[in-house]
Amino acid sequence: MSMHKPNPFSPTRRRSLITLGGLASAALLPSFARAAWDGKAVRIGYQKSSTLTVLAKARGALDKRLAPLGLKTEWFEFTSGLPLLEALNVGSIDFSADVADTVPVFAQAAGARLTYVAQEAPSPTAQAIVVPEVSPIRSLADLKGKKIGVAKASGAHYLLIAALAKGGLSPRDVEVAYLTPADGRAAFEKGAIDAWAIWDPFLAGVQRQSKVRRLTGEPAVAEYKRYYLAADSFAEARPDVLALIFDELKQTGRWVKANPKEAAAQLAPVWGLDADTVELANGRRSYDVRAVAADQLGEQQRIADAFFDEKLLPKKVVATEVRLWKPA
């Protein structure tokens, strides 16, 4: 039977992957012993926006496939990708649903022992920098001196850095306000920020409910891939289970693209959005789940270099120096 458990990582029990003074610390997670997989349940961490995992959970698909192996599923919901990968690193969960491409880079810089299992093919239009429709900001260069909201270490954070560079600017030329998606939406609609870097489904929500313009378009300045990861100990112990999860995610991704209205109807109550908004968001995500190869990590290296150059990573990261799970 599937079990849903509360997030075990309260602020008083863990060290965050991000610090108050920056995004990453050189002294991350050393006080926790890494727990090996217990062999009884597959503990899966996810975010509300983890589309394919949320659908697999709601349908009980993984429960059915794991039952013949004598395994059950336990589910842990997280608010964002960094604490999700922290839990994975210290052994509180075994598998992580999709996180933005930036998040594994920060985990790697922190010395986390994680295995890349899968990636979704690029979805560059599923994130954007938006401004109010009446804003005088017409180009990326016009962002100079403006206040821009973005979630720390998110894919949109890299989008912002890359877009500013394209406009001949750097983060030092603007005022960056680190905001969660909910706080960013509120600040944007009140006019407390001039622009907002955000991803779907939050992007689709503000596009449908407010009058906004995208500043970022074609050609894309960021690929925006999403990654699925596993704890090293779990990947070593049960590659067969990873193969089963990989296959389920791949099938679910194909189903979402083939059945956009039905998928939107199922996700709408989970996301708290109307079905049309969900369908718009899903239309921009590839949901094309595939294995990860070292020669596909070029964008990861660009992300690592950009954050290091901005002094947001404690050390240089070589993107290919990671463990990769390979389908049999």
Rank of each mutant, 00 (worst) to 15 (best):
S2C: 10
M3N: 15
P8A: 00
S10K: 14
T12K: 14
R15P: 14
L17G: 09
L17V: 01
S25I: 10
A27R: 13
A27M: 13
L28V: 13
I44Y: 03
I44Q: 00
S50W: 00
T51Q: 00
K57P: 05
K57V: 03
K64W: 14
T73S: 08
F76Q: 03
T79K: 09
G81E: 00
L82R: 05
L84C: 03
S96E: 08
D98N: 14
D98F: 15
A100E: 01
A109R: 01
A110E: 08
G111I: 07
A112N: 07
R113I: 15
Q127N: 06
E133M: 07
E133I: 07
L143W: 10
L160R: 03
L169D: 09
V174M: 14
A186K: 15
W196K: 01
I198D: 07
Q209A: 08
V212W: 09
R214P: 06
L215N: 02
K225Y: 08
A231G: 14
A231D: 13
S233R: 04
A237F: 11
L242Y: 11
F246V: 05
D247Q: 11
R254D: 15
A258W: 06
K261M: 13
A265V: 14
Q266F: 13
W271Y: 09
G272Y: 05
A275L: 03
N282I: 13
N282C: 12
S286P: 04
V289A: 00
V292H: 01
A293I: 11
G298T: 01
D305I: 09
A306H: 08
F308Q: 05
P314T: 11
T320Y: 10
T320A: 14
V322C: 01
R323I: 07
L324H: 10
K326Q: 13
K326N: 04
A328M: 12
